[in-house]
Amino acid sequence: MMRSRRGVCGGRGCVLVLVVCAGGILLVLPSCYQFFLHTLAQLHQLMSILQHPSVCQYPSFFYNETEIKGINSSVVSAGRCLPQPRYLPLPQDNQQDRSLPYITINRGGRIGNEICQYMSLAVLRKMFGVRASIHGEMEKYIGQFFHRLTLPVQDSHRSHNYTIKLHYDDIYKTLVTRVNNNGPPPDAPYPYPINQSIYIYNNPCPPDVLLPFRGQFRQEFTFREDIVDKARKHIDEAIRMQSHLADKNLTKITVHVRRKDYIKFLKERFNLEPVEKSYFERAFDFFRQRVPEPVFLVTSDEPRWCRENLIQPDVIHVGSNDSVVDLALLTLGDHHVITYGTYGFVGAFLGRGTIVYPESENSWPFFRCINSTIYQPIPRD
Rank of each mutant, 00 (worst) to 15 (best):
M1P: 15
R3I: 13
G7H: 12
V8K: 13
G11M: 06
V20H: 11
A22S: 15
G24A: 13
L26E: 15
V28E: 15
V28F: 14
F35R: 15
A41W: 13
A41I: 12
L50M: 15
Q51Y: 12
S54M: 12
P59H: 10
F61V: 05
F62E: 08
E65H: 12
S77H: 11
C81S: 07
L82T: 04
Q84T: 08
R86H: 09
L88G: 06
D93S: 10
D97E: 13
R98T: 14
I105E: 00
R107A: 05
E114R: 12
C116Y: 02
Q117L: 02
Y118F: 06
Y118D: 00
A122T: 05
F128H: 04
F128E: 01
I134H: 04
G136R: 07
L149V: 08
L149T: 10
T150G: 11
P152W: 02
S156T: 14
N161V: 02
N161R: 10
Y168G: 00
D169G: 02
T174A: 05
N181A: 14
Y192W: 04
P204R: 00
P204A: 01
P206I: 03
P206M: 03
P207V: 02
D208A: 11
P212H: 05
F213G: 05
R218K: 11
K233H: 13
I235T: 08
R240I: 04
L245Y: 06
K252M: 13
K252G: 03
R258C: 06
K260A: 11
K260R: 12
L266A: 02
L266P: 03
L266D: 02
K277A: 14
S278I: 07
Y279T: 01
Y279N: 04
F286Q: 07
P292S: 12
P292W: 05
P292M: 07
P294H: 02
F296V: 03
S300H: 00
W305I: 01
R307V: 08
E308Y: 05
I311R: 12
S320N: 08
L327F: 04
L327E: 04
Y340P: 01
F349Y: 09
G351Q: 01
R352C: 10
T354G: 04
I355W: 00
V356Y: 01
P358N: 05
S360K: 06
R368L: 05
S372L: 02
R380M: 11
R380F: 08
